[in-house]
Design a protein around this nucleic acid. Structure first.
Ligand SMILES: [Mn+2]
Ligand SMILES: [Mn+2]
Ligand SMILES: [Zn+2]
Ligand SMILES: [Zn+2]
Lengths: 143, 143
DNA sequence: GGCCCAATTGAAACTTAATCTCAATTTCAG
DNA sequence: CTGAAATTGAGATTAAGTTTCAATTGGGCC
């Protein structure tokens, strides 16, 4: 599982397996859904383990490079991440009124992107699609 | 054109038409393609007009709200914008090796997004799709 | 034109996510 | 075990973007 994958990733890069890195990994995979670095850091602290903010950020970057975690949005208020292992790729709709996040996946959408990449001789490795607008509830409320 | 649209937008919100705002607007629409706030600020300065960084940022936000300008990406190193008036909506492919940006548009892709929004009772107003990977040149070079 | 007041401006302070520094500590291959 | 190389944490640093606030300006009104 993710533990093994991360260990392989570290080994392949000549990086070391430390308790701090493992703590970050464990915490991330215990969270269901999206998370922010600061919350991750606080969760780790409150679970008794000690790992500095610096280590949390450093590990987060490694996890993104390894492909186990994805950075799904960047905003003034910081980045949002989610773990992708055991979690099929998907995109997001974000309600600009209430902040609700709807996850969706469309094979169709993925396929068309492949076709477009081919047309431009581009080797796509990842993508982020964010649709902004209003969710059902907020739309109704406005009326 | 964009000047009139912006003036209407300002009027509708009881905002004033100032030389600083006009300078920012003019500069943005004289740039072909993507730009960063800092470069925008420097361009304005070097064109002899004086407008503070604060005003540039403030105006940029107004322009995004008005729909004349879009924020197309956010990164550690700041945001990237482009003007959208007289410039059909499109999405981007970004080469993670050399930074090249390819613009593309697919009616098909847009349509599927509409269908998906409907399925989720979501009223989409805008979206950002960024495909990351390697451009043709960088792919060849790696071989 | 001139009046008046809300809107705007700029300089500098501030905010804050994220990165960097570097001495002390830890990992792990041999 | 040992030693070299990697890692850590506390605090300093960075830099994009926002806020503050006194001085200035735009524009509706007469
Ligand atoms: Mn998600
Ligand atoms: Mn573009
Ligand atoms: Zn909502
Ligand atoms: Zn390239």
């Amino acid at each position: 599982m993710e533990r093994t994958l991360f260990m392989n990733f570290l080994a392949a890069r000549g990086l070391k397996l430390t308790k701090e890195r493992m703590a970050v990994l464990r915490q991330i995979f215990s969270i269901h859904g999206h998370f922010e670095p600061e919350r991750l850091y606080l969760n780790i602290r409150s679970s008794g383990i000690k790992a500095s903010r610096a280590s949390v950020y450093r590990t987060l970057n490694l996890l993104v490079e390894s492909g186990l975690v994805e950075r799904i949005s960047r905003s003034e208020k910081g980045n949002v991440y989610e773990h992708t292992y055991g979690h099929r790729h998907h995109d997001h709709m974000i309600c600009t009124t209430c902040g609700e996040v709807i996850e969706f996946f469309s094979e169709n959408l993925e396929e068309i992107q492949n076709v477009i990449c081919t047309r431009y001789h581009f080797t796509g490795t990842s993508h982020t699609l964010e649709i902004r607008g209003q969710c059902r509830t907020c739309k109704k409320r406005k009326k």
